[in-house]
């Protein structure tokens, strides 16, 4: 009831949004058509509808299938471990929605008249960019740094976009499906 009413309210305000066909659990889940509508929608949710808390910012890499060669493995086969050679051929899973895109997922909460809402935004894998929410929600600062660190998605207008979890010297972004680990000084 509340879900449908809030969804209808948002859709009336922003007709370019659409309901996500695969929602997060039973929560109202909306899909943003382009990166330009992100900031207006989030501002509207916060200022007019009372979603005053940003639960999380995360991302999904839809590239597939995964090539396990990129993982750190020892060359020699362990005595009691099967050689991982058979796993080297990456087979696509039937029905998996592979595409060349990252999906950014935003979760917002409302505490008066409690409700949680999810927003999804596709960004291309080449030059992934989105607007930063750090000016609207202070907590977006570190969460976007984490997404930048692990997926390499750039957030325009972020005050301090640096790596947060991994080494500054790490090459690449580890949660990308095509990540290949380059040996660093700790691996030797």
């Amino acid at each position: 009831m509340t879900n449908e009413r809030v969804t209808a309210q948002i859709l009336a305000q922003f007709p370019q949004l659409e309901k996500d066909p695969s929602p997060v659990k039973d929560y109202p889940t909306l899909r943003l058509p382009d990166a330009a509508s992100l900031l207006p929608v989030i501002s509207h949710l916060k200022d007019s509808l009372g979603f005053s808390y940003l639960d999380m910012v995360t991302a999904v890499d839809w590239k597939g299938p995964v090539d396990p060669a990129g993982y750190v493995r020892e060359e020699r086969a362990h005595p009691f471990q099967a050689k991982p050679a058979a796993a080297a051929a990456a087979k696509p899973l039937p029905g998996a929605p592979y595409r060349d895109a990252f999906t950014l997922v935003y979760a917002l909460s409302r505490f008066a008249n409690p409700l949680k809402i999810f927003l999804k935004l596709d960004v291309p894998r080449e030059q992934p960019r989105a607007a930063s929410l750090a000016r609207i929600f202070r907590t977006a600062d570190w969460q976007e740094r984490e997404v930048f660190d692990l997926f390499g998605i750039f957030f325009d207008g972020h005050p301090d976009l640096r790596r947060i979890l991994t080494l500054e010297s790490l090459q690449g972004h580890p949660l990308r499906k095509d990540y290949a680990h380059a040996e660093d000084r700790f691996d030797r």
């Binding site: 993982y71 750190v72 493995r73 979890l165 991994t166 080494l167 790490l170 580890p174 990540y179 680990h181 700790f186 691996d187």
Partner: peptide
């Protein structure tokens, strides 16, 4: 976590 990109493979390396 031996296969991980983020974990040191033994503290005796340092």
């Amino acid at each position: 976590f031996h296969d991980s990109y983020a974990v040191l493979k033994g503290v005796d390396k340092i």
